[in-house]
Design a binder for these strands. Structure first.
Length: 476
DNA sequence: ATGTGC
Protein backbone atom coordinates (compact mmCIF):
# COMPACT_ATOMS: atom_id res chain seq x y z
CA UNK A 1 0.00 0.00 0.00
CA UNK A 2 1.19 3.49 -0.86
CA UNK A 3 2.02 5.17 2.42
CA UNK A 4 1.59 8.63 0.86
CA UNK A 5 -2.19 8.14 0.72
CA UNK A 6 -2.41 7.93 4.51
CA UNK A 7 -2.22 10.41 7.36
CA UNK A 8 -0.09 9.02 10.14
CA UNK A 9 -1.84 9.49 13.51
CA UNK A 10 0.68 7.54 15.56
CA UNK A 11 3.27 4.81 15.34
CA UNK A 12 0.64 2.19 14.51
CA UNK A 13 -2.40 4.28 13.48
CA UNK A 14 -3.08 5.53 9.94
CA UNK A 15 -6.09 7.48 8.77
CA UNK A 16 -7.82 8.06 5.47
CA UNK A 17 -10.00 11.19 5.87
CA UNK A 18 -13.46 11.01 4.36
CA UNK A 19 -13.69 11.97 0.71
CA UNK A 20 -16.58 11.80 -1.78
CA UNK A 21 -19.11 9.24 -0.60
CA UNK A 22 -17.30 8.23 2.60
CA UNK A 23 -19.45 8.98 5.66
CA UNK A 24 -16.61 8.42 8.14
CA UNK A 25 -12.81 8.11 7.96
CA UNK A 26 -11.07 4.78 7.48
CA UNK A 27 -8.41 3.77 9.99
CA UNK A 28 -5.69 1.14 9.66
CA UNK A 29 -3.79 -0.13 12.70
CA UNK A 30 -0.37 -1.40 11.62
CA UNK A 31 3.31 -0.51 11.76
CA UNK A 32 5.04 1.02 8.77
CA UNK A 33 6.40 -2.30 7.49
CA UNK A 34 2.99 -3.97 7.58
CA UNK A 35 1.37 -0.96 5.87
CA UNK A 36 3.93 -1.00 3.05
CA UNK A 37 3.40 -4.74 2.54
CA UNK A 38 -0.40 -4.51 2.80
CA UNK A 39 -2.49 -5.24 -0.27
CA UNK A 40 -3.65 -1.89 -1.82
CA UNK A 41 -7.09 -3.49 -2.14
CA UNK A 42 -7.46 -3.08 1.64
CA UNK A 43 -7.38 0.71 1.09
CA UNK A 44 -10.05 0.43 -1.57
CA UNK A 45 -12.19 -1.93 0.49
CA UNK A 46 -12.19 -0.02 3.80
CA UNK A 47 -12.89 3.28 2.04
CA UNK A 48 -15.82 1.53 0.34
CA UNK A 49 -17.06 0.21 3.69
CA UNK A 50 -16.89 3.79 5.02
CA UNK A 51 -19.63 4.78 2.53
CA UNK A 52 -22.24 2.37 3.92
CA UNK A 53 -25.36 3.83 5.62
CA UNK A 54 -25.30 4.19 9.39
CA UNK A 55 -21.58 3.44 9.86
CA UNK A 56 -20.26 4.86 13.14
CA UNK A 57 -16.86 6.43 13.94
CA UNK A 58 -14.74 4.79 11.19
CA UNK A 59 -14.15 1.73 9.05
CA UNK A 60 -11.23 -0.14 10.60
CA UNK A 61 -8.55 -2.51 9.30
CA UNK A 62 -6.49 -4.65 11.66
CA UNK A 63 -2.73 -5.19 11.17
CA UNK A 64 -3.37 -8.57 9.47
CA UNK A 65 -5.85 -7.13 6.98
CA UNK A 66 -5.92 -8.47 3.44
CA UNK A 67 -8.32 -8.57 0.53
CA UNK A 68 -11.67 -10.28 1.11
CA UNK A 69 -15.13 -10.50 -0.42
CA UNK A 70 -16.40 -6.90 -0.23
CA UNK A 71 -15.04 -6.18 3.24
CA UNK A 72 -11.36 -6.86 3.92
CA UNK A 73 -10.48 -9.82 6.10
CA UNK A 74 -9.22 -8.10 9.23
CA UNK A 75 -12.00 -5.52 9.00
CA UNK A 76 -14.23 -3.99 11.69
CA UNK A 77 -17.28 -1.79 11.12
CA UNK A 78 -20.05 -0.69 13.51
CA UNK A 79 -23.52 0.32 12.38
CA UNK A 80 -26.25 2.23 14.18
CA UNK A 81 -29.79 1.00 13.44
CA UNK A 82 -31.13 4.46 14.43
CA UNK A 83 -29.11 5.99 11.58
CA UNK A 84 -30.28 3.54 8.93
CA UNK A 85 -27.40 1.19 9.72
CA UNK A 86 -26.99 -1.97 7.67
CA UNK A 87 -25.98 -5.57 8.12
CA UNK A 88 -23.86 -7.23 5.47
CA UNK A 89 -23.23 -10.92 4.87
CA UNK A 90 -19.88 -9.98 3.28
CA UNK A 91 -19.00 -8.06 6.45
CA UNK A 92 -19.20 -11.27 8.45
CA UNK A 93 -17.59 -13.60 5.93
CA UNK A 94 -18.44 -16.98 4.46
CA UNK A 95 -17.20 -19.01 7.39
CA UNK A 96 -19.60 -17.59 9.95
CA UNK A 97 -18.19 -17.69 13.51
CA UNK A 98 -14.92 -19.19 12.40
CA UNK A 99 -12.88 -19.07 15.57
CA UNK A 100 -10.27 -20.39 17.91
CA UNK A 101 -10.41 -22.24 21.21
CA UNK A 102 -7.47 -23.14 23.38
CA UNK A 103 -7.52 -26.01 25.88
CA UNK A 104 -5.23 -26.56 28.82
CA UNK A 105 -3.86 -30.09 29.08
CA UNK A 106 -2.01 -29.78 32.40
CA UNK A 107 0.87 -31.57 30.62
CA UNK A 108 4.35 -30.14 30.33
CA UNK A 109 6.75 -30.59 27.41
CA UNK A 110 8.85 -33.23 29.18
CA UNK A 111 5.88 -35.65 29.16
CA UNK A 112 5.15 -35.10 25.49
CA UNK A 113 8.60 -35.06 23.94
CA UNK A 114 9.44 -38.75 24.42
CA UNK A 115 6.84 -39.84 21.85
CA UNK A 116 4.84 -37.00 20.27
CA UNK A 117 4.03 -39.19 17.22
CA UNK A 118 1.67 -41.35 19.22
CA UNK A 119 -0.48 -38.37 20.18
CA UNK A 120 -0.26 -37.06 16.60
CA UNK A 121 -1.54 -40.40 15.28
CA UNK A 122 -4.40 -40.58 17.78
CA UNK A 123 -5.47 -37.00 17.08
CA UNK A 124 -5.29 -37.48 13.32
CA UNK A 125 -7.42 -40.62 13.65
CA UNK A 126 -9.98 -38.91 15.90
CA UNK A 127 -10.42 -35.59 14.09
CA UNK A 128 -12.00 -35.68 10.61
CA UNK A 129 -10.07 -33.14 8.55
CA UNK A 130 -10.02 -31.89 4.97
CA UNK A 131 -12.42 -30.77 2.25
CA UNK A 132 -15.82 -32.39 2.69
CA UNK A 133 -14.73 -34.28 5.80
CA UNK A 134 -17.59 -36.07 7.56
CA UNK A 135 -18.08 -37.01 11.16
CA UNK A 136 -19.79 -39.86 12.96
CA UNK A 137 -22.51 -37.65 14.40
CA UNK A 138 -25.43 -37.37 12.00
CA UNK A 139 -28.17 -34.95 12.96
CA UNK A 140 -31.83 -35.62 12.24
CA UNK A 141 -34.03 -32.56 11.49
CA UNK A 142 -35.10 -32.15 15.10
CA UNK A 143 -31.56 -32.35 16.46
CA UNK A 144 -30.35 -29.96 13.74
CA UNK A 145 -32.82 -27.32 14.95
CA UNK A 146 -31.86 -27.95 18.58
CA UNK A 147 -28.17 -27.54 17.67
CA UNK A 148 -28.83 -24.29 15.77
CA UNK A 149 -30.63 -22.91 18.82
CA UNK A 150 -28.41 -24.24 21.57
CA UNK A 151 -24.83 -24.09 20.26
CA UNK A 152 -22.19 -25.48 22.60
CA UNK A 153 -24.86 -25.79 25.29
CA UNK A 154 -26.69 -28.27 23.04
CA UNK A 155 -23.43 -30.19 22.51
CA UNK A 156 -22.76 -30.41 26.24
CA UNK A 157 -26.33 -31.56 26.91
CA UNK A 158 -25.67 -34.37 24.43
CA UNK A 159 -22.55 -35.44 26.33
CA UNK A 160 -19.86 -33.63 24.34
CA UNK A 161 -17.66 -31.99 26.94
CA UNK A 162 -18.14 -30.41 30.33
CA UNK A 163 -20.68 -27.85 31.51
CA UNK A 164 -17.82 -25.89 33.08
CA UNK A 165 -16.63 -25.14 29.52
CA UNK A 166 -19.65 -22.89 28.89
CA UNK A 167 -18.32 -20.05 31.06
CA UNK A 168 -15.25 -19.99 28.83
CA UNK A 169 -17.07 -19.50 25.52
CA UNK A 170 -18.28 -16.19 24.07
CA UNK A 171 -22.03 -15.82 24.67
CA UNK A 172 -21.58 -18.57 27.29
CA UNK A 173 -21.74 -21.09 24.48
CA UNK A 174 -25.18 -20.17 23.17
CA UNK A 175 -25.87 -17.29 20.80
CA UNK A 176 -29.24 -15.74 21.63
CA UNK A 177 -31.60 -14.67 18.86
CA UNK A 178 -30.83 -17.55 16.49
CA UNK A 179 -33.67 -18.29 14.10
CA UNK A 180 -33.32 -21.81 12.70
CA UNK A 181 -36.34 -21.18 10.47
CA UNK A 182 -34.05 -18.95 8.36
CA UNK A 183 -31.57 -21.78 7.76
CA UNK A 184 -32.39 -23.36 4.41
CA UNK A 185 -32.89 -27.06 3.76
CA UNK A 186 -29.73 -27.03 1.68
CA UNK A 187 -27.64 -25.49 4.48
CA UNK A 188 -28.97 -28.14 6.89
CA UNK A 189 -28.31 -30.93 4.41
CA UNK A 190 -24.70 -29.80 3.96
CA UNK A 191 -24.17 -29.86 7.71
CA UNK A 192 -25.96 -33.14 8.42
CA UNK A 193 -22.75 -35.18 8.60
CA UNK A 194 -20.25 -32.37 9.23
CA UNK A 195 -20.61 -31.83 12.96
CA UNK A 196 -17.32 -32.47 14.70
CA UNK A 197 -15.19 -31.94 11.60
CA UNK A 198 -12.29 -29.57 11.12
CA UNK A 199 -12.68 -28.58 7.47
CA UNK A 200 -9.88 -27.37 5.23
CA UNK A 201 -7.83 -24.29 4.37
CA UNK A 202 -6.28 -22.61 7.38
CA UNK A 203 -8.28 -24.69 9.86
CA UNK A 204 -6.24 -26.83 12.19
CA UNK A 205 -5.88 -28.55 15.52
CA UNK A 206 -2.53 -27.85 17.07
CA UNK A 207 -0.70 -29.14 20.13
CA UNK A 208 1.35 -26.19 21.32
CA UNK A 209 4.04 -25.46 23.85
CA UNK A 210 4.08 -22.22 25.83
CA UNK A 211 7.54 -20.81 25.09
CA UNK A 212 7.41 -17.19 26.19
CA UNK A 213 5.48 -15.18 28.75
CA UNK A 214 5.23 -11.42 28.22
CA UNK A 215 3.03 -10.57 31.19
CA UNK A 216 3.25 -12.94 34.11
CA UNK A 217 0.26 -11.86 36.26
CA UNK A 218 -2.23 -12.10 33.38
CA UNK A 219 -0.61 -15.31 32.10
CA UNK A 220 -1.18 -16.77 35.57
CA UNK A 221 -4.84 -15.78 35.41
CA UNK A 222 -5.05 -17.47 32.01
CA UNK A 223 -3.31 -20.59 33.41
CA UNK A 224 -0.32 -20.27 31.06
CA UNK A 225 3.21 -21.20 32.15
CA UNK A 226 6.40 -21.78 30.20
CA UNK A 227 6.62 -25.34 28.83
CA UNK A 228 2.95 -25.97 29.49
CA UNK A 229 1.16 -27.85 26.70
CA UNK A 230 -2.11 -26.54 25.28
CA UNK A 231 -4.26 -27.66 22.36
CA UNK A 232 -5.79 -25.10 20.02
CA UNK A 233 -8.64 -25.73 17.59
CA UNK A 234 -9.31 -23.35 14.69
CA UNK A 235 -12.46 -23.97 12.68
CA UNK A 236 -15.94 -22.66 11.98
CA UNK A 237 -19.45 -23.47 10.83
CA UNK A 238 -18.42 -25.65 7.86
CA UNK A 239 -20.87 -26.12 5.00
CA UNK A 240 -23.81 -24.63 6.87
CA UNK A 241 -22.25 -21.22 7.44
CA UNK A 242 -20.94 -21.15 3.90
CA UNK A 243 -24.37 -21.94 2.47
CA UNK A 244 -26.04 -19.21 4.58
CA UNK A 245 -23.40 -16.70 3.49
CA UNK A 246 -23.85 -17.62 -0.18
CA UNK A 247 -27.65 -17.43 -0.08
CA UNK A 248 -27.89 -14.13 1.80
CA UNK A 249 -25.16 -12.44 -0.24
CA UNK A 250 -27.20 -13.17 -3.33
CA UNK A 251 -30.42 -12.00 -1.73
CA UNK A 252 -28.81 -8.82 -0.38
CA UNK A 253 -27.30 -8.02 -3.78
CA UNK A 254 -30.71 -8.31 -5.38
CA UNK A 255 -32.41 -6.22 -2.66
CA UNK A 256 -29.91 -3.31 -2.68
CA UNK A 257 -31.94 -1.30 -5.22
CA UNK A 258 -35.16 -1.86 -3.28
CA UNK A 259 -33.57 -0.45 -0.13
CA UNK A 260 -31.99 2.40 -2.16
CA UNK A 261 -28.49 1.64 -0.93
CA UNK A 262 -25.82 2.92 -3.31
CA UNK A 263 -23.01 0.36 -3.36
CA UNK A 264 -19.53 1.31 -4.60
CA UNK A 265 -18.93 -2.44 -4.94
CA UNK A 266 -21.57 -5.12 -5.53
CA UNK A 267 -19.80 -7.33 -3.03
CA UNK A 268 -20.79 -4.94 -0.21
CA UNK A 269 -24.38 -6.17 -0.55
CA UNK A 270 -26.27 -5.42 2.65
CA UNK A 271 -29.71 -4.72 4.08
CA UNK A 272 -30.94 -2.29 6.74
CA UNK A 273 -30.70 -3.83 10.21
CA UNK A 274 -34.36 -2.93 10.66
CA UNK A 275 -35.62 -4.63 7.52
CA UNK A 276 -37.16 -8.06 7.10
CA UNK A 277 -34.12 -9.24 5.13
CA UNK A 278 -31.69 -7.80 7.69
CA UNK A 279 -33.56 -9.50 10.51
CA UNK A 280 -33.70 -12.80 8.65
CA UNK A 281 -29.95 -12.74 8.01
CA UNK A 282 -29.28 -11.94 11.67
CA UNK A 283 -31.38 -14.95 12.72
CA UNK A 284 -29.63 -17.25 10.26
CA UNK A 285 -26.16 -15.91 11.09
CA UNK A 286 -26.76 -16.43 14.82
CA UNK A 287 -27.86 -20.00 14.11
CA UNK A 288 -24.58 -20.47 12.21
CA UNK A 289 -22.70 -19.05 15.22
CA UNK A 290 -24.31 -21.78 17.31
CA UNK A 291 -23.28 -24.33 14.70
CA UNK A 292 -19.65 -23.23 14.97
CA UNK A 293 -19.75 -23.23 18.78
CA UNK A 294 -21.28 -26.73 18.79
CA UNK A 295 -18.72 -27.90 16.23
CA UNK A 296 -15.76 -26.72 18.31
CA UNK A 297 -17.37 -28.29 21.38
CA UNK A 298 -17.70 -31.69 19.67
CA UNK A 299 -14.13 -31.43 18.37
CA UNK A 300 -13.05 -30.79 21.96
CA UNK A 301 -14.78 -33.98 23.02
CA UNK A 302 -13.05 -35.96 20.24
CA UNK A 303 -9.74 -34.39 21.24
CA UNK A 304 -10.33 -35.36 24.86
CA UNK A 305 -10.87 -38.99 23.84
CA UNK A 306 -7.67 -39.05 21.78
CA UNK A 307 -5.67 -37.46 24.60
CA UNK A 308 -7.13 -39.96 27.04
CA UNK A 309 -5.75 -42.85 24.98
CA UNK A 310 -2.20 -41.56 25.20
CA UNK A 311 -2.33 -39.81 28.56
CA UNK A 312 -4.97 -41.56 30.68
CA UNK A 313 -6.53 -39.28 33.26
CA UNK A 314 -5.53 -36.01 31.58
CA UNK A 315 -8.56 -33.68 31.52
CA UNK A 316 -8.72 -30.85 29.02
CA UNK A 317 -9.91 -27.54 30.43
CA UNK A 318 -11.04 -24.73 28.20
CA UNK A 319 -9.04 -21.51 28.43
CA UNK A 320 -11.38 -19.62 26.09
CA UNK A 321 -13.26 -19.82 22.78
CA UNK A 322 -13.37 -16.77 20.51
CA UNK A 323 -15.03 -16.18 17.14
CA UNK A 324 -13.51 -13.90 14.53
CA UNK A 325 -16.25 -13.80 11.86
CA UNK A 326 -19.41 -12.33 13.39
CA UNK A 327 -21.82 -9.45 13.67
CA UNK A 328 -22.80 -8.78 17.27
CA UNK A 329 -24.95 -6.26 19.10
CA UNK A 330 -22.80 -4.40 21.62
CA UNK A 331 -22.99 -1.16 23.59
CA UNK A 332 -20.54 1.71 23.23
CA UNK A 333 -20.47 5.36 24.12
CA UNK A 334 -20.39 7.45 20.94
CA UNK A 335 -20.17 11.24 21.25
CA UNK A 336 -21.06 10.94 24.92
CA UNK A 337 -24.17 8.85 24.26
CA UNK A 338 -24.68 5.17 24.97
CA UNK A 339 -25.51 3.40 21.71
CA UNK A 340 -26.53 -0.09 20.71
CA UNK A 341 -24.40 -0.95 17.69
CA UNK A 342 -24.04 -3.86 15.28
CA UNK A 343 -20.34 -4.65 15.21
CA UNK A 344 -19.14 -6.52 12.12
CA UNK A 345 -15.86 -8.32 12.75
CA UNK A 346 -14.53 -10.18 9.74
CA UNK A 347 -11.20 -11.76 10.51
CA UNK A 348 -11.11 -9.71 13.69
CA UNK A 349 -11.32 -10.94 17.27
CA UNK A 350 -13.45 -9.36 19.98
CA UNK A 351 -11.12 -8.09 22.69
CA UNK A 352 -13.09 -6.87 25.73
CA UNK A 353 -11.01 -5.04 28.29
CA UNK A 354 -10.90 -5.38 32.08
CA UNK A 355 -14.21 -4.88 33.84
CA UNK A 356 -16.46 -5.72 30.90
CA UNK A 357 -19.71 -7.13 32.33
CA UNK A 358 -19.99 -9.85 29.63
CA UNK A 359 -16.71 -11.46 30.65
CA UNK A 360 -16.70 -14.51 32.92
CA UNK A 361 -15.70 -13.88 36.51
CA UNK A 362 -12.28 -15.49 35.95
CA UNK A 363 -11.20 -12.79 33.47
CA UNK A 364 -13.30 -9.79 34.45
CA UNK A 365 -10.49 -8.19 36.37
CA UNK A 366 -7.81 -8.59 33.68
CA UNK A 367 -9.69 -8.66 30.37
CA UNK A 368 -10.61 -11.18 27.70
CA UNK A 369 -8.17 -13.75 26.33
CA UNK A 370 -7.59 -12.98 22.65
CA UNK A 371 -6.41 -16.09 20.81
CA UNK A 372 -4.33 -15.42 17.70
CA UNK A 373 -3.34 -18.29 15.46
CA UNK A 374 -0.11 -18.10 13.53
CA UNK A 375 0.52 -19.76 10.19
CA UNK A 376 1.44 -23.46 9.95
CA UNK A 377 4.71 -24.14 11.74
CA UNK A 378 4.98 -20.68 13.31
CA UNK A 379 4.11 -19.15 16.68
CA UNK A 380 0.63 -18.43 17.94
CA UNK A 381 -0.11 -15.79 20.58
CA UNK A 382 -2.40 -15.20 23.50
CA UNK A 383 -3.27 -11.56 24.05
CA UNK A 384 -5.54 -9.77 26.47
CA UNK A 385 -8.19 -7.14 25.75
CA UNK A 386 -7.57 -3.57 26.92
CA UNK A 387 -9.86 -0.94 28.38
CA UNK A 388 -8.85 1.68 25.82
CA UNK A 389 -9.53 -0.82 23.02
CA UNK A 390 -13.21 0.18 23.29
CA UNK A 391 -12.21 3.56 21.82
CA UNK A 392 -9.84 2.15 19.20
CA UNK A 393 -11.81 -0.29 17.06
CA UNK A 394 -14.84 -1.22 19.16
CA UNK A 395 -12.87 -3.68 21.28
CA UNK A 396 -11.38 -5.61 18.39
CA UNK A 397 -7.97 -7.01 17.54
CA UNK A 398 -6.35 -8.99 14.74
CA UNK A 399 -7.22 -12.66 14.17
CA UNK A 400 -4.05 -14.26 12.82
CA UNK A 401 -1.10 -13.78 10.60
CA UNK A 402 -3.19 -12.94 7.56
CA UNK A 403 -2.33 -14.15 4.08
CA UNK A 404 0.51 -12.47 2.23
CA UNK A 405 -0.12 -14.31 -1.07
CA UNK A 406 -2.96 -16.20 -2.72
CA UNK A 407 -3.50 -19.94 -2.32
CA UNK A 408 -2.86 -20.44 -6.00
CA UNK A 409 0.42 -18.56 -5.88
CA UNK A 410 1.52 -20.50 -2.80
CA UNK A 411 0.65 -23.88 -4.36
CA UNK A 412 2.86 -22.99 -7.36
CA UNK A 413 5.75 -21.94 -5.17
CA UNK A 414 6.02 -24.80 -2.64
CA UNK A 415 5.71 -28.57 -2.44
CA UNK A 416 3.70 -30.00 0.45
CA UNK A 417 6.10 -32.91 1.00
CA UNK A 418 9.14 -30.64 1.26
CA UNK A 419 7.36 -28.39 3.76
CA UNK A 420 6.37 -31.37 5.93
CA UNK A 421 9.99 -32.60 5.90
CA UNK A 422 11.36 -29.16 6.67
CA UNK A 423 8.97 -28.70 9.59
CA UNK A 424 9.84 -32.21 10.85
CA UNK A 425 13.48 -31.09 11.01
CA UNK A 426 12.29 -28.25 13.27
CA UNK A 427 10.54 -30.79 15.50
CA UNK A 428 7.03 -30.00 14.24
CA UNK A 429 4.78 -32.91 13.25
CA UNK A 430 2.27 -32.22 10.48
CA UNK A 431 -0.62 -34.57 9.69
CA UNK A 432 -2.92 -33.70 6.80
CA UNK A 433 -4.99 -35.42 4.11
CA UNK A 434 -3.84 -32.89 1.51
CA UNK A 435 -0.30 -32.11 0.40
CA UNK A 436 -1.63 -29.38 -1.84
CA UNK A 437 -3.39 -27.88 1.18
CA UNK A 438 -0.04 -27.89 3.00
CA UNK A 439 1.61 -26.01 0.11
CA UNK A 440 -1.21 -23.44 0.14
CA UNK A 441 -0.60 -22.95 3.85
CA UNK A 442 3.18 -22.55 3.58
CA UNK A 443 4.43 -20.38 6.45
CA UNK A 444 5.85 -17.82 4.00
CA UNK A 445 2.46 -17.45 2.29
CA UNK A 446 1.44 -15.58 5.45
CA UNK A 447 2.51 -12.37 7.11
CA UNK A 448 4.71 -12.64 10.19
CA UNK A 449 2.26 -13.23 13.06
CA UNK A 450 4.82 -11.74 15.46
CA UNK A 451 4.80 -8.43 13.57
CA UNK A 452 0.98 -8.44 13.40
CA UNK A 453 0.62 -9.12 17.11
CA UNK A 454 3.33 -6.58 17.92
CA UNK A 455 1.42 -3.90 16.00
CA UNK A 456 -1.88 -4.84 17.70
CA UNK A 457 -0.09 -4.55 21.06
CA UNK A 458 1.50 -1.19 20.24
CA UNK A 459 -1.83 0.14 18.94
CA UNK A 460 -3.40 -0.81 22.29
CA UNK A 461 -5.97 -3.12 20.68
CA UNK A 462 -4.83 -6.01 22.90
CA UNK A 463 -1.71 -6.74 24.93
CA UNK A 464 0.70 -9.63 24.40
CA UNK A 465 0.56 -12.23 27.16
CA UNK A 466 2.19 -15.41 25.84
CA UNK A 467 3.72 -17.02 22.77
CA UNK A 468 3.06 -20.64 21.79
CA UNK A 469 5.02 -22.85 19.41
CA UNK A 470 3.54 -25.79 17.51
CA UNK A 471 4.52 -29.35 18.35
CA UNK A 472 1.83 -31.26 16.44
CA UNK A 473 -0.46 -29.83 13.76
CA UNK A 474 -3.50 -31.64 12.34
CA UNK A 475 -4.21 -29.66 9.20
CA UNK A 476 -7.42 -29.63 7.19
C1' DA B 1 -13.75 -20.35 3.98
C1' DT B 2 -16.42 -23.87 0.48
C1' DG B 3 -19.87 -30.83 -1.80
C1' DT B 4 -12.90 -25.15 -3.79
C1' DG B 5 -14.24 -22.55 -10.00
C1' DC B 6 -20.53 -19.00 -13.68
Amino acid sequence: MNIGQLIRRGETCWEIPPTAAMRVPAVIYADEGLIRAMDPKVYEQITNVATLPGIVEAAYAMPDAHWGYGFPIGGVAAFDPDQGGVISAGGVGFDISCGVRTLHTGLTMDRLESDPHRLADELYRAIPAGVGSRGKIHLNPHEMTAMLTGGARWAIDRGFGEAADLERIEERGCMAGADPAQVSARARERQREEMGTLGSGNHYLEVQRVVEIYHRPVAEKFGLRTDGIVITIHCGSRGLGHQIGTEFLKEMAMAAAQYKIALPDRELACAPIRSPLGRRYLGAMRAAINCALANRQILTHLTQKAVDTVFPGVRLELLYDVSHNTCKVEHYTVNGRKKELYIHRKGATRAYGPGHPDLPEAFREVGQPVLIGGSMGTSSYVLCGTEKGANRAFSSACHGAGRAMSRHQAAKQWRGRELVDELARQGIIIRSPSLRGIAEEAPLAYKDAGAVVGAADKAGLAHKIARLEPVICIKG
